[in-house]
Design a protein around this nucleic acid. Structure first.
Lengths: 108, 108
DNA sequence: CCGTATCCAAAGAGATACTG
DNA sequence: CAGTATCTCTTTGGATACGG
């Protein structure tokens, strides 16, 4: 893979690219929910009180496009769709843990 | 302080509160720039290519309101304003490091 | 059940001109 | 220099309604 070569950006430029992937308003919350394991669409929706169907679908699509979550469809009636984290997605756990730790100390 | 008591929220609810503080589109980039030390308004602006004056001012105000950055004004002509991280702000360094590490491995 | 489509309101973001 | 004011455009949110 040729595009795999690392851009040696200094400064926040590269951070901005990263934040396009995980900086969406609901991304971190969704990933957090999925850390505990596979979830269905409606389970995720219930787990995140203020999200709405449209935004959840949109964010899940974004995360799937970036290979952070995997979407599995089962041909049942009614349909079942499951989401879980990829390896890439699971590696975001330290990020969330650090955010959470900081928040526990400072936000409440 | 009475409101200091810890809300024992499970789930992403508390994450949402945290993200109101540091989840702004430019917050992480600004904090990243300030980790290397005190900066003036225009220095920060130049360090973050796609930000504009209004958004930088707005985010800096938000971060100052949450005591993540300190704003120091010097009565010079033309005026000098310096920003740096508070202790609380400096403690976000692990968060940024984890984001950065993840990005190095997966975004490029 | 799992979404997409639509409409509308509200908030956020961008560009640029202007002031102490 | 360090912002604010203003105007415009995009994104988000909320409420359904509808299809596979």
């Amino acid at each position: 893979m040729d595009e795999k070569k690392i851009k040696k950006n200094e400064g926040p430029c590269s951070l901005i690219e990263i934040l396009k992937v995980i900086g969406g308003k609901w991304s971190i919350s969704i990933i957090y929910v999925l850390i505990s394991g596979t979830k269905r669409f409606s389970e995720i929706e219930r787990s995140i009180p203020n999200i709405n169907t449209r935004m959840l679908a949109k964010e899940l699509k974004n995360l799937a496009d970036h290979e952070i979550v995997i979407r599995k469809v089962y041909a049942t009636v009614p349909p079942t769709v499951e989401y879980n984290l990829t390896t890439k997605g699971k590696k975001l756990e330290p990020v969330i843990n650090e955010i959470y730790k900081w928040g526990l100390e400072y936000v409440y």
